[in-house]
Design a protein around this nucleic acid. Structure first.
Length: 580
RNA sequence: GCGGUUGUAGUCUAGUCUGGUUAGGACUUGGGCCUUCCAAGCCUACGACCCGGGUUCAAAUCCCGGCAGCCGCACCA
């Protein structure tokens, strides 16, 4: 199986190791080895190129430990947990709410554990497998809990996603972007979920790295100014409709997908294309990538539309590596409610509108003496009432009855003056909607290894793109002799001075060294041979086809730099040499 | 979390049933010889019984517990 071969190399050559092996390991944790750490960083920096530099979404960094309130507001404290119960006899573990629903048919979602326990005993619900007694209900929350501070009074959690770290300082971010939509903010970092039994290697980790962008948009305008640049990108789309009809996915251009309504907005479609291009740049070809829309049943209750970017694997089938969701205004609204802060954005109309509006003006000279101490709260209550409603009531009854805190007040028409005024509306305050591309970096890392892995006869190579390969170039003496080694070492050091990751290897035969080099995906090798001593030229070998060209040592540095940055291809070099 | 199954150098494996000398081999890796461009050959070196407890004169081997891997079930906002 390709997965096993890739994971073998990853382990052998220092990309991925399971963590804490010395103490026999803990499931769900992985170390990135020496090559893995560079590769992961290169992938993350490529992501930054896309989102921070090209899209202009600034990056922030927030703590990985969060106070309970924040996660209460986001819904994670209550909803990220499952009520569990265990059979005392057969020790089987069940979801308490599922068992109750099965037994008595009532929906008990949202009940506290004690209430659930009570329902279990009141209704005499037993173990559905053996009929044994069920234990009290406990919560299994997927978040890691900790305490903040020496007294341990404040509960904290390791964050289950990086996104919340962006929503919480929203007001400051809005001000940073000078109050104008749309804008985007990204965060890359660790997130934590205490999975019950993670067993899928780096696909399901308890500590993992996310790269998330939160793009705040006007709900009435989900367009993207650069959509025309991606409109002809071809996407493999697997819409919810086609899934429920049991049909296959289809190839469609981004423009068509938008026009046909397959994807709900231009902004969302653009994000799908961006993800596709990003993966392609990492060496993951389009034919192993698909965009699968969430079925309405699996979509989180706040999402309007959600697409998973999935890659095909031999071991795990289609695996979600990126989720791109329209989270609507759920998060900001919720944080606004919990924090009592106004998290709305003022959207200015292109032309201010003048509307006629009926307003109520209490005549204070009569109002005050009549109601005395109650006057203030009556005035407050009046503010929330539509003036036209009062006007109509006056017409019918000649008076208006207002109920405030249990008391009823008679407001006669001589107490209130109704005026029609012109009101100028310059804009409206709304909660922005959030488009969220959320990348699982570890899964992408795995996808890169899996799909760059290549076996030709007995040769194994990792066709990593030159700009993300952890080692950019190897320098070899053809034979392990002093004069050749000396020059090779000089070249390596000079490459390092030029900020290129270069390694030297003189062990074994040249063939063996090329093989080792291919196995970790070093795109180019510079070889010093006996002729170098006379003509000051070296050969550069291309990993993917083993072809070689010979160039002066003085050119090596610029050439390797250009090859590594993808400024030129090896083919360009070959042609250049042919022509000269 | 439950059940089944497995655990010997970096990797693959012999030995375990039937307890007994220094745990054997291959590949890899390091050093060297040879070698004028793709895992050749020769010499040499390093390197292992998952952890803890028990039985026994003696445990890689038998028993118990733990941990981890794999498979199935359950879980997966």
């Amino acid at each position: 199986m390709k997965n096993d071969e890739v994971m073998n190399i990853a382990k052998k050559r220092g990309f991925l190791w399971s963590s804490f092996e010395l103490y026999s390991g803990v499931a769900g944790f992985f170390d990135y080895g020496p090559l893995g750490a560079i590769l992961k960083n290169n992938i993350m920096n490529k992501w930054r190129e896309y989102y921070v530099i090209r899209e202009g979404f600034f990056e922030i960094e927030s703590p990985t430990i969060m106070p309970e309130e924040a996660l209460k507001a986001s819904g994670h404290v209550d909803n990220f947990t499952d009520p569990m119960t265990e059979c005392k006899d057969c020790m089987e573990v069940f979801r308490a709410d599922h068992i109750i629903k099965e037994a008595i048919g009532s929906d008990v979602e949202g009940l506290e554990n004690e209430e659930l326990s009570k329902v279990l005993s009141d209704e005499n619900i037993c173990c559905p497998q053996c009929g044994g007694y069920l234990t009290h209900v406990w919560s299994y929350n997927l978040m890691f809990q900790t305490v903040i501070g020496a007294k341990g009074k404040k509960t904290g959690y390791l964050r289950p996603e990086t996104a919340q770290g962006i929503f919480i300082p929203f007001k400051r971010l809005l001000r940073f972007y000078r109050g104008k939509l749309p804008f985007g903010v990204v965060q890359m970092g660790k997130a934590y979920r205490n999975e019950i039994s993670p067993r899928q290697g780096v696909i399901r980790l308890r500590e993992f790295t996310q790269a998330e962008a939160e793009i705040f948009v006007n709900p009435l305008d989900k367009s993207h100014p650069k959509f025309c640049e991606v409109a002809y990108d071809i996407l493999h789309l697997y819409s919810a409709e086609r899934q429920s009809n049991g049909e296959h996915m289809v190839k469609m251009s981004a423009g068509d997908a938008l026009e046909s309504g397959t994807i709900s907005s231009e902004m969302l479609t653009y994000q799908l294309c961006l993800a596709g291009r990003f993966l392609n740049d990492l060496g993951i070809p389009g034919n192993v990538v698909r965009f699968r829309q969430h079925l309405s049943s699996e979509m989180a209750h706040y999402a309007i539309d959600c697409w998973d970017v999935e890659i095909e694997t031999d071991k795990y089938g289609w695996v979600e590596i990126i989720g791109i969701a329209d989270r609507s205004d759920y998060d900001l609204k919720s944080h606004s409610q919990y924090s009592k802060e106004d998290l709305k954005v003022f959207i200015e109309y292109s032309q201010s509108k003048v509307v006629k509006k009926l307003v109520v003006k209490p005549l204070m000279s009569k109002f005050g003496p009549l109601f005395k101490a109650d006057a203030t709260k009556i005035l407050e209550a009046l503010k929330d009432i539509d003036a036209s409603q009062i006007a109509n009531t006056f017409k019918d009854k000649g008076k208006y009855e207002l109920e405030v805190e249990g008391s009823t007040y008679q407001l006669s028409s001589d107490l209130l003056e109704l005026q029609e005024v012109d009101e100028t509306l310059r804009g409206v305050k709304i909660y922005p909607h959030v488009i969220e591309p959320s990348y699982g970096i570890d899964r992408i890392f795995y996808a890169v290894l899996l799909h760059c892995y290549c076996k030709e006869d007995d040769k194994v190579l990792l066709r990593l793109p030159a700009d993300i390969a952890p080692v950019e170039v190897n320098v070899f003496p053809l034979l392990n002799k002093d004069d050749q080694s000396r020059i090779a070492l000089e070249i390596r050091d000079q490459l390092r001075n030029d900020n290129i990751v270069a390694e030297y290897d003189s062990s074994g035969t040249i063939g063996r060294r090329y093989a080792r080099s291919d196995e970790i995906g070093v795109p180019f090798a510079v070889t010093v041979d006996h002729d170098t001593l006379n003509d000051n030229k070296v050969t550069i070998r291309n990993r993917d086809d083993s072809k070689q060209i010979r160039i002066p040592i003085s050119d090596v540095y610029q050439v390797i730099k250009d090859l590594s940055n993808l400024k030129i291809s090896f083919k360009d070099l070959e042609n250049e040499i042919l022509q000269s």
